[in-house]
Design a protein around this nucleic acid. Sequence first.
DNA 1: CCTGGAATTCATCATGCGATGAGTTTTGCG
DNA 2: CGCAAAACTCATCGCATGATGAATTCCAGG
Lengths: 217, 217
Amino acid sequence: MGRAAGPGDNDRVTSAEQQQPETPRKRTGRRPGGADTRRTVLEAARAEFAARGYEKASMRAIARSAGVDAALLHHYFGTKDRLFLAALEVPIDPRVVVGQVLAGDRATIGERVAAFVLQLWEQPETRDRMLALLRTAATNEQVAQLMRGFMTTELVAPAAVELDIPQAELRFELMMSQIVGLAMARYVIGVEPLASADPAGLAPLLARTVQGYLAEG
Amino acid sequence: MGRAAGPGDNDRVTSAEQQQPETPRKRTGRRPGGADTRRTVLEAARAEFAARGYEKASMRAIARSAGVDAALLHHYFGTKDRLFLAALEVPIDPRVVVGQVLAGDRATIGERVAAFVLQLWEQPETRDRMLALLRTAATNEQVAQLMRGFMTTELVAPAAVELDIPQAELRFELMMSQIVGLAMARYVIGVEPLASADPAGLAPLLARTVQGYLAEG
DNA sequence: CCTGGAATTCATCATGCGATGAGTTTTGCG
DNA sequence: CGCAAAACTCATCGCATGATGAATTCCAGG
């Protein structure tokens, strides 16, 4: 099962190769011009982690994709772990969002949640972060635990406060499991026609399922 | 993110260590007594692949767990790929099962599918095979492709024939995505209370969702 | 009983990985 | 201007992995 045509086999070459063979070009030392290398590295890392998961995304590959030596990643981030965490760092506070989306007419809660989630997964940065998490959690207990903790304290707990239904935690988690499964089927496994389906077409079907879990006892 | 306390960190020691330091014990060569070593190896492999996924399950670890030298696995199966496939080989014909479960009263199709699926995942051998596939497909495009093909030709296509609803493929795949997501949340991420929930308690909630996808236009 | 083949292990190779430390070049502060 | 710190690369280490080939031991057919 060697690498043959993996996901993310896009030969990403970001910022390298703007050097003519004219000047002999010293290779080592600080670069002129304050390029935001750190940001470039983080973007390359995010893409690589999303496409291959933590273990298969090598420091060397990330470095190459960022047009940089691998040792530089260690210079900036120390270890691969810390680069991973830095690449996945998410700016928003999920508790707030959960509150906003769940609050409101209970008869249309399915529509609102479905629309919000589908739109989230359409944004490339968010999608990459979530794909990296999902792909990694599948075989890395440490990251699975991270995800479990995040879900429980940042999503389930606030949601259970907002919802006033029996088995709120279980039902909300079943709803989340549908989201996770949709992501797996659509983006990881890529089964058709689901993988290419228009989000707008998915929305009502997903909405009905969410509605079943979060309302209508 | 080194190995710290991964899933499947059970220190499996299957058949090794029944040798006293009494006799000097020659270590090489064929063993006396026709033990079914091949079967032992396959079981160890299945457990390891299920717990860690293809790439993290090392030949050496599988061999150790089977109480055998790693070279023996190559003797029997050639490559790691082929051992993986041999360990996952499934005896039943899914097309038949799909037909049986889907046929019948359309008003209770959700119950039947939910019951069948939940029972499938309760059987350890089936669960191990599916977990190995799922964990591996997350980061291995080759296996993802295998799974995609299997789903399409063995599950979706037969199901679409049986069901006479619009968007049959899409709806059936959404149903499957709920199954996959449930497995991820329950067995891989292990979020509570879902992970420890009684299958009997899950059944009606899952049934309702399935019913929504496969019936009730 | 003898012999060929199957079962099993040992020693070893090449490869890719994360990490480290030393060296070089540029920036920016005083 | 001078110089310390930051940015950046090179060479290299140690480790784990999948794979291979030779060597050893046992079983079964003649």
